[in-house]
Design a protein around this nucleic acid. Structure first.
Lengths: 149, 149
DNA sequence: AGGGCAGATGCAACCGAGTTGCAAAAGACG
DNA sequence: CGTCTTTTGCAACTCGGTTGCATCTGCCCT
């Protein structure tokens, strides 16, 4: 059975490995897997999310933490705390997760990614440079407003 | 020795006690103390900050958590996670900490409160209702840009 | 190809913030 | 003053995250 998928998984992994080596670090399976996951994810992932996806052949808890921290340190990813006080990681910069808007429902806790473009950032005090802007909205989602709860 | 300070501490405490009773709860020393602290604080306080200020005659750790949670529940305060994943509490509503914009320096970690008004929020998908909007910016502050680090 | 070593991993134990359950103390109210 | 409810304090626990250390491995250099 020939592999005719648009971009072969192996090729993707190779590209990621290359990107990892470019930072001067070793391209290990753990890093490649995690990077793959993050690139594919539509929203920032928590440590738990990743552990759940990796499932059976999961990495050690600690290794995962270290991989994630390394990603942040090397500039490939950014981390941020969510409203429930857990770290969430997403690809940095050009990734699919570029400054869009998040909405968190205060009733059911779910997070929605709105495709609304982010507001143009206000001017900063002199000397400040902006790397990233996040608009976080919260309230009630349609479902929770629709009677239940 | 007559107390001639601008607003006598006792009077302030009484006013706060009144506000507490207005919510239907008991005006206990613990609640009054914490509420005093929060009203006086220039920035949101963490559990630890409060414990440190109370110092010697401090409340039990758990009681403090409960008082804080009660404050939030009764609408007198709001809580929010900071970049170090700890809860920070501030007086709700009319407080000094109303929907403004935060800038966090990725180099030194400090948080600046900009007085820029928050952008007007984008339209939400049908059925969603907005309760709160936060614009979080990050980058480098003037000081860190000025050569050091 | 294979050796060597810095860098990465896994394990176990640890940490600190926050939570829960329960009995004792303190307000409120008749 | 008695009783009934709310708060408090204590102890034990959960959970996300971290640290120390021994083992393993990707990668470079012959």
């Amino acid at each position: 059975m020939p592999d005719i998928s648009p971009a072969s998984p192996a090729a993707v992994a190779d590209a990621l490995a290359e990107r990892i080596r470019a930072t001067g670090a070793r391209a290990t399976p753990a890093r490649i897997r995690v990077l793959e996951l993050l690139s594919a994810a539509p929203a920032p992932l928590s440590h738990q999310d990743i552990e759940a996806v990796l499932g059976a052949d999961s990495l050690d808890r600690v290794t995962l933490y270290r991989v994630l921290d390394w990603l942040v340190e090397s500039g490939l990813a950014v981390k941020r705390v969510d409203e429930r006080r857990v770290w969430r990681f997403s690809l940095a910069g050009g990734g699919t997760h570029h400054g869009h808007v998040h909405f968190r429902c205060e009733t059911c806790g779910r997070v929605f990614c709105l495709d609304t473009p982010p507001p143009r950032p206000p001017k900063l005090p002199g000397g400040f440079t902006l790397a990233r802007a996040e608009l976080d909205l919260s309230g009630r989602c349609a479902e929770c407003n629709a009677g239940n709860v």
